[in-house]
Lab assay of single mutants.
Amino acid sequence: ENLWTTASTFIVLFLLSLFYSTTVTLFKVK
């Protein structure tokens, strides 16, 4: 379960960073 928890945390952080960079890009375009 420890490995699954680590993987889940990594996926969440990846999605958050992806969402953040997408938002920054949209604001830069405007």
Rank of each mutant, 00 (worst) to 15 (best):
L26V: 12
T25P: 01
F14Q: 01
F27I: 12
I11W: 08
F27H: 06
L16Q: 03
K30G: 11
T9P: 01
L3C: 11
T25R: 00
F19I: 15
T6M: 12
T23Q: 03
L18K: 04
L26T: 06
V29Q: 09
L18D: 04
F19H: 05
T25N: 03
W4C: 09
T9Q: 02
K28R: 09
F10P: 01
L16H: 05
T9V: 14
T23S: 11
I11C: 13
S21F: 03
E1D: 11
F19M: 15
F27Q: 05
L3G: 13
I11S: 06
T22E: 04
T9D: 02
T25D: 02
I11T: 07
L18W: 05
Y20C: 04
F27Y: 12
N2E: 14
V29S: 09
F10K: 04
F27L: 11
I11P: 04
F19N: 02
F14H: 03
L13E: 00
E1L: 08
T22Y: 10
K30P: 06
T22C: 09
I11R: 01
V24W: 00
F19D: 00
K28L: 12
E1W: 08
N2S: 14
F10W: 08
F14K: 03
Y20D: 02
S21N: 06
W4S: 14
F27N: 02
T5L: 15
T22M: 15
T6N: 05
F14V: 03
S17R: 04
V24L: 08
V24I: 11
L16S: 05
F19S: 14
W4K: 09
S21L: 04
T5I: 15
S8C: 15
F19T: 13
T6Y: 05
V29D: 03
T5C: 15
L15G: 07
V29F: 10
K28I: 10
F27E: 05
L3I: 13
T6S: 07
F14C: 01
I11G: 07
L16M: 13
L15Y: 00
L18C: 15
L3S: 15
L13V: 03
L3N: 13
K30E: 08
E1V: 08
K30F: 11
W4I: 08
T9R: 03
F27W: 11
L16P: 02
T6C: 15
Y20L: 04
S21D: 01
T9H: 04
N2C: 11
A7S: 12
V29N: 07
E1Y: 11
L3F: 05
S17G: 08
T6D: 06
K28A: 08
A7V: 07
V24F: 05
F27G: 04
F27T: 08
V29Y: 07
W4M: 10
T5R: 10
F10M: 07
L18V: 13
L15A: 08
T9A: 12
W4L: 10
V29T: 10
T9W: 09
L26M: 11
L18F: 06
L16A: 11
L13R: 01
T5W: 15
F14M: 00
V29L: 14
T22S: 10
E1K: 07
K28E: 00
F10R: 03
Y20T: 04
T22R: 01
